[in-house]
């Protein structure tokens, strides 16, 4: 498949901790290609690492999809973290700060939201979870 500069998509199956590492490295690479400044590429890589690890921990396996985003004049990057795992029974609770932000046992989702510009989550118990985040070039 020929790689074009835009509308490029990278899909990383996430099944192990090595895939978590690969997903965030691929994300950083893509952010760099899209001309993100280095500091923002680090934010993107950190968000991917967090989302990919959630997949391993809570669903066992899933996928990270990294795509270039274009909305009018804005360019950026979209990260989708998807799994068919147990789902999150109480999303608003999972989105609250607390024990999760001090590096405790939480999902780290509030932190991911603060790293990125846009954040959406869809989850259904016994069906799975999809988190979709965006970062725009500045």
């Amino acid at each position: 498949m020929a790689a074009t500069s835009y509308h490029r998509e990278v899909r990383v199956p996430v099944r192990s901790d090595l895939d978590v590492l690969k997903a965030r490295q691929d994300g950083r690479e893509m952010a760099r290609e899209l001309a993100f400044i280095s500091a923002d590429s680090t934010l993107v890589a950190t968000a991917i690492s967090e989302l990919a690890r959630n997949i391993i921990q809570y669903a066992g396996q899933g996928e990270i999809i990294i795509t270039a985003a274009e909305e009018g004049a804005r360019r950026g990057i979209i990260i989708v973290a998807h799994d068919d795992g147990p789902g999150i029974p109480n999303i608003s609770e999972a989105m609250q700060d607390g024990y999760s932000t001090s590096g405790g046992l939480g999902l780290g989702l509030p932190g991911v939201r603060r790293l990125m510009d846009e954040f959406e989550i869809f989850s259904e118990v016994n069906a799975g979870t999809t988190v979709r985040v965006k970062k725009w070039l500045r």
Binding site: T42, S102, G103, G108, P110, G111, L115
Partner: peptide, 17 residues
């Protein structure tokens, strides 16, 4: 800790204890 990584920790809300 690189300044960029320090910044990401601050935004995330992470601390080293």
């Amino acid at each position: 800790i690189h300044p960029e990584i320090e910044e990401s920790m601050k935004r995330f809300g992470l601390r080293l204890e």
